[in-house]
């Protein structure tokens, strides 16, 4: 028991846990929208597209967070614009835009001597997070949660039936932008804390777990949040004990939870095989 608690006697571990949990909660809620809307590639795309923004912000002396957000949000907007104005489907548009932006970011990075550490951007450094980043992440996560609390119901309707949302007098275009903006902001916050790959995972897997275990949106969100938090705690614990990659451990913990959900899911579980409905 003492061995299990040992990690948490270090101040930096507690900080890591706080940041990790904030990011996990926000990302888990968003993942429910992402999974239902079919936007899985979006998290992947936006999290990579922030790279040129970070480098350019460094060059002009702007806050890195702002540069990252502008680039990430810009990637989402540009993909949408390409889909709307040409025959290219959205998934291909996103692939083109984000790989292009990441490539430009890589080239810029080799051309300028900066203190932007690529490995930090890609894999995060939750255990070595700095004070300034700590508060920034908390502020962004808090803001994102507030927006979701206020406009969550509209966003559910937007995901489920955009036509009805339009008819109910909601501004569908604005809701889409709002969801994208919250997504981009939480990715920016998440990337500097936990890295690209973990953010991508946190934006998909908890929602998928929720969908397996719940058949109401509200319950799905609770399941997703609980799964993400559990995986964060377990992952940090394991990574400390084995001296393993923190991001890798958290993603693995998420995967284990997903497999568990797959086994016990009441409607879709492998342990309770029932004939599928005919439709």
């Amino acid at each position: 028991m003492n061995a299990l608690l040992a990690p948490w006697t270090h101040g930096f571990m507690v900080d890591a846990l706080v940041v990790g949990l904030m990011v996990a909660v926000l990302a888990a809620i968003l993942s429910c929208f992402v999974v239902l809307k079919g936007w899985s590639l979006m998290g992947d795309a936006v999290s990579h597209a922030i790279l040129p923004g970070v480098v350019i912000a460094y060059l002009v002396g702007a806050p890195l967070v702002i540069g990252a957000f502008v680039a990430g949000f810009g990637c989402a907007l540009a993909s949408g614009a390409i889909r709307a104005t040409s025959r290219i489907k959205e998934d291909a548009a996103m692939g083109v835009v984000f790989s292009g932006m990441f490539a430009v970011g890589l080239i810029l990075l080799t051309q300028v001597r900066s203190n932007v550490h690529l490995s930090h951007v890609l894999f995060g450094s939750i255990l070595g997070i700095e004070d300034e980043d700590f508060w920034q992440t908390l502020a962004i996560a808090g803001g994102g949660l507030l927006i979701l609390a206020l406009r969550g119901r509209d966003l559910v309707l937007f995901c489920f039936d955009p036509g009805q949302a339009r008819i109910a007098g909601l501004k569908v275009g604005r809701l889409r932008l709002l969801l994208l903006a919250v997504l981009a902001a939480s990715i920016v916050a998440g990337v500097q804390a936990v890295g690209v790959i973990l953010v991508v995972a946190l934006l998909i897997t908890p929602g998928a777990i929720g969908l397996l275990l719940a058949d109401r949106f509200g319950r799905m969100v609770w399941v997703a949040v609980a799964a993400a938090c559990l995986a964060t705690v377990a992952g940090i614990q394991v990574s400390f004990m084995l001296d393993a990659s923190t991001a890798g451990s958290i993603v693995l913990a998420l995967s284990v939870l997903f497999i568990a959900a797959l086994l016990v899911s009441p409607r879709h579980g492998l342990l309770r095989r029932r004939p599928r409905a005919p439709w």
Binding site: V156, F160, D161, A168, A214, R216
Partner: peptide, 11 residues
């Protein structure tokens, strides 16, 4: 989509 009949009508 995880919504009940009542949820849909409430929309």
């Amino acid at each position: 989509f995880p919504v009940s009949v009542r949820d849909v009508v409430m929309m």
